[in-house]
């Protein structure tokens, strides 16, 4: 446990040392201002526009941080053989991977804490200035749902990137497959969901139907849009569904991480 903690703090410090990470965090700090400026081009529902920008920004910045900071760090570890330093006995391969993962996850948590503070600041401003009938049911929970869903979905993506790092041979491979994973997670689930439609599946062989359902089960639903839209439109959040969505992601991340540890333990470095 001690080695995991040491490596996690070290990884967090190493990531914070990257200029690109500091720029991303600065963008996250400035995002509410950008959202406010952008909303001034609209005539109504300004808060919704601002929170839409915060939503898009949260998802984008999480993904950017993983692809431009975590992937190069892991790429250097594996491809540049930097992991030899960290895997020095008595540090085990699992401790190394978990330490790196937790360090990167801490950075994501910091990013989403900044974004949450930004969203809440916009919401507080709106609640203070907007008359009661123009608040559209937006409350402090809206900001929490935006940052929270973006956070756990980014951590799922992070786990997938670590799974890829467990078998990738270098930076180029890791980056390529990580981008592919992003695309797969974002594009495939809605397509598969549409394909699962019984009307569409009429006459299709059973094994193909099972295959589609199997792949749909394998890929996590990366879009928490239904919860964010509901929150932005003042509808009551279905917390049971939100919890299930979160648990699905937690399970997926855990599965990826376990597979990562198993594969990494067996490979030559």
């Amino acid at each position: 446990m001690m080695h995991i903690k040491n490596l996690a703090l070290y990884s967090f410090r190493e990531l914070m040392g990257m200029l690109v990470v500091r720029i991303t965090l600065a963008v996250a700090v400035l995002l509410p201002l950008a959202a406010w400026i952008f909303s001034q081009f609209f005539l109504m529902e300004l808060t919704k526009v601002q929170l839409d920008v915060m939503t898009a920004g949260s998802y984008l910045l999480g993904m950017v941080l993983i692809l431009i900071a975590v992937v190069p760090m892991l790429g250097a570890d594996i491809g540049g053989r930097l992991c030899y330093f960290y895997l020095m006995p008595p540090v085990s391969r699992s401790e190394y991977m978990l330490g790196r993962f937790i360090g990167a996850a801490l950075l994501l948590l910091l990013l989403f804490a900044v974004l949450l503070a930004g969203s809440e600041a916009l919401i507080a401003m709106a609640l203070e200035h907007a008359p009661a009938d123009r608040r559209y049911g937006i409350s402090w929970e809206t900001g929490l749902i935006i940052a929270g869903t973006a956070c756990y979905q980014s951590i799922t993506l992070l786990a997938a990137v670590f799974f890829i790092a467990a078998w990738a041979t270098g930076f180029a491979e890791l980056l390529l497959f990580s981008i592919a994973a992003c695309a797969l997670f974002w594009i495939m689930p809605p397509v598969l969901e549409a394909m699962k439609n019984p009307f569409l599946m009429v006459g299709v062989p059973t094994w193909i139907v099972s295959l589609v359902h199997g792949i749909a089960w394998l890929l996590p639903e990366m879009n928490a849009g239904q919860f964010i839209l509901a929150a932005l439109h003042g509808q009551a959040t279905d917390y049971t569904m939100l919890l299930l969505h979160f648990l699905g992601h937690a399970g997926y991340a855990l599965m990826m991480l376990m597979a990562c540890l198993l594969m990494f333990a067996r490979r030559d470095l």
Partner: peptide
């Protein structure tokens, strides 16, 4: 050495 960690002191 192939590489060293770059963003740390």
């Amino acid at each position: 050495l192939a590489r060293m960690p770059e963003h740390i002191t």
